[in-house]
Nucleic acid binder design. Structure first.
Lengths: 217, 217, 217, 217
DNA sequence: GATGAATGAGGCTTCATTCAT
DNA sequence: CATGAATGAAGCCTCATTCAT
């Protein structure tokens, strides 16, 4: 609680404004994922962030705004990064696809960020604004990026002429499943799903679909 | 809870007595799916069921028990039915798989029953009892049934020697995605996902994986 | 407090719906007058009305609506009654004026209803809706009624040709003062103002103004 | 914000130290009048005074003390000044009375000081200390001064033998009404009351009462 | 002196649950 | 059986007050 204050007495490089908002949204993400929106008490968020109840209101107008901030913040950076990678990549598209799916697991699926999809799915009806935002800022860009990846593969003669829209969705389905699993039923059977194995098999299936029989090893 | 038992003592058919519990769970399912557990007021459930607030407590000890009843009831009948079909089926396994997936969409995915997975995912953490129940009574039986279907396909030389466990999961992922979509983000872009088309493509992909290149049409 | 419950066990004449709303607004009037709007806790209102905190919300959407109801209710009956008296009266107008001022003291000024003007004055800025309502429903009708009284007096040759608008205001000023006094500073010097005496002198002054020197006794 | 400081560097008589307390009480008077005691946030007072929230506590122990200071300060100077005028005046008393009432309107009634009576009336019950102070320091001295004015008029044969106590009250009532009007309902019907006209009529009425029929022009 | 970030007590409001009728 | 008025625990939010800088 007061440890942050002490840490700052020292010197020189100054920890700046303490990044209070980030501390709070980080704490809130954990609790929202764990207990849902309604089940999360702002007092608990504050406690986990190491601040008092009132401090939360210094940075977020109310619970709803905190919730929106959590979703936005958890999404912005990973998303833009991934789009850049796809658009700048030149080379074997299937390899890129595999790499990105495995990377996704390491950087999102296996982290607390995997809780965001659950959060959005759970609360979309109660927060149309969040749903709209997530559609526009996450789902549609992600679909578009994966769609471009596939079409690029088709253009360069690497992929068969599949329906890019449907494939983009099918590519994401098992990943979404893993993310949801980790943050819901996975709690009571942690070993029942093996993410690495599942992604491997998913890749094999995609290979068959995208590359055709000729290229199957 | 025990009142249902009594109501059935008498004659064969006779549905009598208004089926109050079913009316209530039906209303509750809609609202729980729409607003989440915490966001659903018992008063609204009562109103939608056409009864008074007090009546809900005549049949369900409290909100938690009502929630459990909703999940259990929404699951029981479709589940047992499906297992029977699979176990008794003799013939082309891929055909059965396709038929069941399409059937699933018609009988579950496109109905309000599709809200149950969302419900369970959203509230699993808050209701470990529900999570455990759903794992034991739904997920594991479903996985096992699909696993058997696959293994039967392998045994009869129809399918390639795939990992039945991973495949069972991969088969379900897009279906789960459709169910969740309908009950969350789908509200703000109803046309963005075409269930029939997606299932068609999913089937094509599975065909490639399970039957091998030789049998692709 | 619990006596209401006990009182109902008995018999016969049945207290009906218990008039909960009236009990609550009566309690609220006392407390709003005593402590102001913000200083009044709904819990105290509930306690004084002999109900629980939640019950208040059964009848009033929120504190603001309760406040409005208090003002409206405290005003409605006395107002309409007085207007009828004035409009139907035939005879000596000065006598009517005196009678009404003395009556006002007995029926309003000396009762808890005298708290309403203070309330409205204190909170007019925070509740423009109340201010508007009070202007339209109380101040303007009262001014109009008194204005008619004066003009009737002039027409029948009883009063001198005074400005009815200004006179209406001047007639009310000392009465308002008495009402405010009772509900503010009067608390710390209860005897400093003698209402009956003040009204008597006010009447003498009005007599001089309205009737002219000829009729002064 | 800092411009005030700069503007004062120059001149002769030096207003010293910024007069922070006065700036703060001036800001507080406006807000207390507008929103009432409870409705006024110290943060807003600070902002309007051009200082930080913490600075208010440098000069006033707490909100209550600030409130008391506002009332005291708004009252002290005008009051003592008026008493001196009355006590030193020699000449036509009715003329003095008229002049003072008209002066009162210009220097108090038409300024933000007119908010103080409303403030005191609104909060007297919550601040007995203020009520007591106001009674002792304002009401009683004012009544006494006006009482002396009247008695002096009687002694010099100018006024009829009226009851000085009642008359002092009656003289003030319309003025109080004007002050309250400006700070409450006047907000929603600014033109409904004409202060100058009302005071003129009030003076005519007082003339009749005090001077008797013989001297009416 | 001055600041403004941080605190936490306190009040409004909701809603699951009870119970007299 | 059924009702719905009543309850009160619990959570969101405000804002007077403090204090490290």
């Amino acid at each position: 609680m007061t440890s942050t204050a002490k840490a700052r007495q020292e010197p020189r490089w100054e920890r700046r404004k303490d990044d209070r908002p980030e501390q709070i949204t980080a704490a809130a993400l954990d609790l929202f994922v764990e207990r849902g929106y309604a089940g999360t008490r702002l007092e608990d968020v504050a406690e986990r962030a190491g601040v008092s109840k009132g401090t939360v209101y210094l940075y977020f107008a109310n619970k709803t705004e905190l919730f929106k901030a959590v979703v936005r913040e958890g999404i912005v950076s990973p998303l833009t990064e991934a789009r850049n990678v796809i658009d700048q990549y030149r080379g074997d598209m299937f390899e890129l696809l595999c790499k990105m799916m495995r990377e996704w697991w390491l950087r999102i699926g296996a982290t607390s960020l995997s809780g965001i999809p659950k959060l959005v799915i759970s609360e979309a009806r109660n927060f149309p604004e969040i749903a709209e935002f997530y559609m526009t800022e996450v789902i549609e860009p992600a679909n578009a990026a994966i769609g471009r990846l596939i079409e690029r593969g088709i253009e360069r003669g690497e992929f068969r002429a599949v329906d890019a829209v449907q494939m983009a969705t099918l590519i994401q389905a098992p990943l979404l499943m893993l993310a949801l699993w980790r943050n819901s039923l996975g709690c009571c059977r942690p070993q029942a799903l093996d993410p690495a194995k599942l992604i491997d098999h998913h890749i094999e299936m995609l290979r068959g679909m995208l590359l055709g029989s000729a290229q199957r090893r």
